[in-house]
C-alpha cells in the first residue's frame, strides 16, 4: 500500500527535491527500505548499513515517534501520515 512520507529539508535533494514522496509498505521498516531503494541517495541517511534507524533521525506515524511504538515493525495503514525529522535540541 502506498503512503506519503514527508522529508526534512536536508534530505530532499537526495529524493528529487520534493517535500513528500510516496513509498510502499505495511510497516515503517518496509516503507523506509523501499524509500531508500527508490532514492539511493538516502542510503545511510535514514537507515544505517545494518538496517537500523539512523541515530539522529526520528520517524513519526501520525505525530507519534515510532521508537516508542513498535520501532521498524510499527504497522502502517492507509491514510497514515509519516514524517522523517532530524533530532534537535530543546530546552
Amino acid at each position: 500500500m502506498p503512503v506519503e512520507v514527508r522529508l526534512p529539508t536536508l534530505l530532499r535533494p537526495a529524493a528529487g527535491g520534493t517535500t513528500t514522496v510516496t513509498a510502499e509498505g505495511s510497516t515503517i521498516g518496509e516503507v523506509l527500505r523501499n524509500l531508500v531503494g527508490a532514492h539511493p541517495g538516502l542510503a545511510g541517511q535514514v537507515l544505517t548499513e545494518k538496517g537500523a534507524l539512523h541515530r539522529f533521525v526520528n520517524v513519526y506515524v501520525n505525530d507519534d515517534d515510532v521508537r516508542y511504538l513498535e520501532q521498524l515493525e510499527t504497522p502502517v495503514t492507509d491514510g497514515d501520515e509519516i514524517s522523517i525529522l532530524p533530532a534537535v535540541a530543546g530546552g
Partner: peptide, 20 residues
Amino acid sequence: EPPAGEMVDGLRNLDDGYIP
C-alpha cells in the same frame, strides 16, 4: 515535543542533529 519546524531548516547535515 514541539514540531522541529523551521529550526530544522538550519541543519546542514544529519550529524548536526543533537540528542542531550
